[in-house]
Design a binder for these strands. Sequence first.
DNA 1: GTTCCCGTGTGACGCTTATCACACCAGCCT
DNA 2: AGGCTGGTGTGATAAGCGTCACACGGGAAC
Lengths: 239, 239
Amino acid sequence: MLSPYGLEIVESCLTCKLRAERIFCDLPNSALQAFENIKYATAYPKGAVLFVEGQSPRGIFVLCKGRVKMSICSTDGKTLILKIAEPGEVLGLSATVSGKPYELTAETIDPCQVNFVKREDFLRFLKEHGDACFRVAEQLSEKYNNACHEVRSLGLSHSAAEKLAKLLLEWSSRNGEAAKQEPRLKLALTHEEIAQMIGTSRETVTRLFAELKKRQIIQSKGSTLFIRNKAALRLMAGS
Amino acid sequence: MLSPYGLEIVESCLTCKLRAERIFCDLPNSALQAFENIKYATAYPKGAVLFVEGQSPRGIFVLCKGRVKMSICSTDGKTLILKIAEPGEVLGLSATVSGKPYELTAETIDPCQVNFVKREDFLRFLKEHGDACFRVAEQLSEKYNNACHEVRSLGLSHSAAEKLAKLLLEWSSRNGEAAKQEPRLKLALTHEEIAQMIGTSRETVTRLFAELKKRQIIQSKGSTLFIRNKAALRLMAGS
DNA sequence: GTTCCCGTGTGACGCTTATCACACCAGCCT
DNA sequence: AGGCTGGTGTGATAAGCGTCACACGGGAAC
């Protein structure tokens, strides 16, 4: 079956093939059945906003397919992207648990499939299923860990170059390309977005890329980026 | 009874008078009894290190008395303080849950009383007590929330002045002094430490304080600091 | 009292980076 | 083809702030 946005919808978590790989989804059958009864399977087009920072929490969004941009925004319109969420992540979890407003804004950057669960339903579900509750704690730990990395990158770097180097190394290690001497990675974001990820300006990112190319550290072909000198990048990243 | 560092030790969580005020400690009696059996009541002098970032997690530290500095540190020795933990907080929680290394370093800045629980004991405890597990999720949400604020402050501020203003306002709102027009607060940290909290240099903090005093926005008497013009501070903080 | 040390105050200098301004290019629509 | 739009490249300029250097003062130790 096809959803409005060209996605093939996975109707039930019970039969989802991707379940086992995911921290939250791989629950015992009884819990999964209960989850099945309270979730709403939904789909969003690219550019949809799941929730906005400051909103009081309506519930959680389990991302099944597609990527979601998680960001915060200052009063004067500057945006900082904390991470690009991947399938398997639970969005809006900490706000839903604590009852405080969402900390971040979640915006889809692909067509996405999402399971939504209302806050009251989810909290009741957690009280009744201790094992799910532990998974939630694990997910939250993961998110906390992530936030700490962000803090480290933003707070302890001396220059924008250092932060960019860190980001590129991290990206290359995601794709299992880390082992290779010349990892390649798809550049799925604009300079503007990269700037927002490392807390700098678009122009600085452009200039840094130019310099990296001049120094033969990276090389780009279309939207694919080759890291030609990983050692130099590591040096720039300060580790 | 007296501990080595002049602390009056609270022997049992069951009879602890402060229990009700604390997110984690206020557990049902059955869970509390179980917790009682696996915890080690310990005391530390000022300046003791509970754990270091990068260590694999030994377990959790429930802070009963005193304050603990939570920080990260770069390879070149620069330090960033994420927060000063207060009694009632559970330290090392996310690492203990996820099994990944401690994200932060925890160092006491007062004589402290701490309940330590070994990782295996704690995980078993969580599996057996669903309500405690939910409290853990709440604590983790709190910590995540905190980290997000830090990210916002570090990543979206235009200047050190903005970050300092934010910090001072936050401190004044802690002490229930927020309502007053001229909140006062105890300056318990050195300029160096304040610099480490907002990710800037000691000299910059000194200069900023000098300017704030010159502009009659703050005033200090001994280690007490009066905020004389909260509106101006808010303006500086960009909100 | 004297010494020592830590925290604070302040000037000079230079690097990094934000900002503004504009040119250029590719793809898309009409 | 022509125009438009969104992303990219690049220069000039100025501000913010890190860094080094050193002076000062107060409290603790002796």
